[in-house]
């Protein structure tokens, strides 16, 4: 009795499915002499089947890792989208004296409700003329510590490594190599507004 190969076997070219069972005894192959050859040809599909199943296993695990990984890695590296920078009102124009540099504060745009102190931001604002203002980022251009405005000395001084900037934000002493970042300002309806900017990390600053 000779078993027929299964349809799966034929469709997969012998990789999968039931192989044809050899005749139990063949007249031309007495004893077992010819069976060695028969077994040889028979073990080929079995090995391929094993290989294929191994591939199925590895492939499925790989697919699972990819499928699970996409949302996990994606979410891990997601940063909140901040498509538009927002103007912040920091005070009425009359609050500021010409030639004075003062600290102004504002709340970050659209903070999560639990942001607390993390949402609060500051900038330095200097009034130059009637409607002319300059705003400076508070972050030292060395490694990002907060520079302190010392009115008496008319200098911004960084407490971390002794960086010093003049009232125009230019470096006058210490390790920093680039001036303080300037923020955009505008006056609307007698209110001074500052355009919030990201923490000026170097990559962005040079861009």
């Amino acid at each position: 009795m000779t078993g027929k190969p299964s349809m799966l076997y034929r469709l997969t070219g012998g990789r999968l499915g039931r192989a044809p069972t050899p005749p139990e005894s063949s007249p031309g192959c007495p004893g077992g002499c010819g069976c060695a050859g028969q077994q040889g040809s028979n073990s080929q599909p079995v090995t391929s089947r094993r290989n294929f199943l191994a591939m199925v296993g590895v492939g499925t695990a790989g697919l699972a890792a990819t499928l699970a990984g996409i949302p996990i890695i994606g979410a891990l590296f997601s940063t909140p989208a901040r498509s538009e920078r927002v103007w912040h009102v920091v005070g009425s124009i009359d609050d500021f004296e010409v030639e004075d540099t003062v600290k102004v504060e504002f709340i970050d745009d659209d903070p999560v409700p639990w942001a607390g102190p993390a949402a609060r931001n500051a900038a330095y604002l200097r009034r130059l003329g009637e409607e002319e203002f300059t705003a400076f980022s508070i972050y030292c251009t060395h490694v990002g510590c907060p520079v302190a405005w010392r009115a008496g000395a008319s200098l911004f001084i960084c407490p971390c490594h002794g960086g010093v900037f003049d009232r125009e934000g230019d470096v006058v002493a210490g390790p920093p190599e680039t001036p303080l970042l300037r923020l955009d300002t505008r006056v609307r309806d007698g209110q001074v507004e500052v355009l919030a900017a990201p923490v000026p990390v170097t990559g962005r600053r040079n861009a």
Binding site: F77, T79, P80, R82, D108, P111, V112, P113, W114, A115, G116, A118, A119, N121, A196, P198, V199, V201, T202, G203, R204, A207
Partner: peptide, 20 residues
């Protein structure tokens, strides 16, 4: 990749509610 690492660290462009 510096800028991307920085934004990963702060979870955004500034210190924010997500940073901690």
């Amino acid at each position: 990749v510096g800028e991307h690492i920085a934004e990963f660290i702060m979870a955004g462009e500034t210190v924010s509610g997500e940073t901690l």
